[in-house]
Every structure is written in structure tokens, then in C-alpha cells.
């Protein structure tokens, strides 16, 4: 039996009909063409399907799409404003925070939620906040460093780098 639902996705109102058993991740990807949330484990372990629901991260692989009815959803596609990356995204770019990039959408949303609540988190707070997002490439330290640097917080010790010569 189909259910009609409507929600706000990346500031746009969406109305669609779906079956009750459809999973939010699959509806976003396959019905709405929003591809930044990825499927990594399909059971809520890896966090790469993370989306924001009313500003809080949820794992869209273990959410029924019908549960989104009336809610406000944000994916990585909805973060940029006027084509500009957020300061957090810019920091990730400058710190070489991602390698393959598959976990990036989830990590960026988890960090977005964290900074919203706590603009100047400590290194441990950052690690705790992103600990539900698995990354196999980076060893996390470049991610932690980028988040710590967004609001000019101190760089937590972790990854030693020489002075960066950043050019574009």
C-alpha cells in the first residue's frame, strides 16, 4: 500500500508516494537522485549514509522513508549556499581530510551537527562526534584537524605536517 508523504529536502519541498517498507536511503538515492548519502554497510554501522533530519544526524539506511514525513532533511548537496563551500568544507579541502571520499558526505554532516552545537570542540569531542563514521583511508587525524581549524580553534596534536604551501 502506497503512502503519500511530504518533507523538506535541502530547502525544497518534496511530495511523493512510496510503499511503507521503503528505506530512506534508497528513496533519496533511487527516487530523488540525491546520491551523496552512500550505502556502506546497510545496517547502521558505518555512517556513510548519514543525513541530517531536523539538524540531527541519522543513518538513512535504518530509517523508513515514511518516517521523514513532515521533517526537514539535509544532505551534503544542501550544504553549499550560492555555490560556495561552507567554511567546514573549505577546511576539509585544505587539510587533505579525505582520500577516496566515500565516507566524506557522512563525516561532513556529522561535523556540521557537531559545530552547530559546539563551535569550538576539543580534539576528544571531535573524535567522539565522528566516531560513528568509518573511514578506512585517512586514519582520521586529518579530519579531526580540519574540524578543529574551522573556527580557528587550536590544532590538536596528532598529525605532524610541515608548513603548508597552499596555492590554488
Amino acid at each position: 500500500m502506497k503512502k503519500k508523504l511530504s518533507f523538506v529536502l535541502n530547502d525544497r519541498k518534496i511530495t511523493l508516494e512510496i510503499a511503507a517498507q521503503e528505506v530512506l536511503l534508497e528513496v533519496l538515492r533511487d527516487k530523488l537522485g540525491v546520491k551523496s548519502p552512500k550505502c556502506g554497510c546497510d545496517r547502521g554501522d558505518c555512517g556513510t549514509c548519514t543525513v541530517l533530519m531536523n539538524g540531527k544526524t541519522v543513518r538513512s539506511c535504518i530509517v523508513l522513508a515514511v518516517e521523514a514525513d513532515g521533517q526537514r532533511l539535509t544532505t551534503l548537496e544542501g550544504l553549499m549556499k550560492d555555490g560556495q563551500m561552507t567554511p567546514l568544507q573549505q577546511s576539509f579541502l585544505e587539510h587533505n581530510s579525505f582520500q577516496c571520499g566515500f565516507c566524506a558526505p557522512g563525516v561532513i554532516l556529522a561535523a556540521t551537527e557537531l559545530l552547530e552545537r559546539n563551535p569550538k570542540p576539543s580534539g576528544d569531542e571531535i573524535k567522539e562526534a565522528i566516531s560513528g563514521n568509518l573511514c578506512r583511508c585517512t586514519g582520521y587525524l586529518p579530519i579531526v584537524e580540519a574540524i578543529a581549524n574551522v573556527n580557528n580553534a587550536l590544532t590538536p596534536p596528532g598529525r605532524e605536517r610541515l608548513g603548508k604551501k597552499v596555492r590554488s
Binding site: V58, S131, G132
Partner: peptide, 9 residues
């Protein structure tokens, strides 16, 4: 319990 994305639900 879990991590943030689990605890939010």
C-alpha cells in the same frame, strides 16, 4: 550507546 547518529534515534 552507539554513536551520535544512533543515539539521535
Amino acid at each position: 550507546v552507539g554513536s551520535v547518529g544512533i543515539r539521535n534515534r
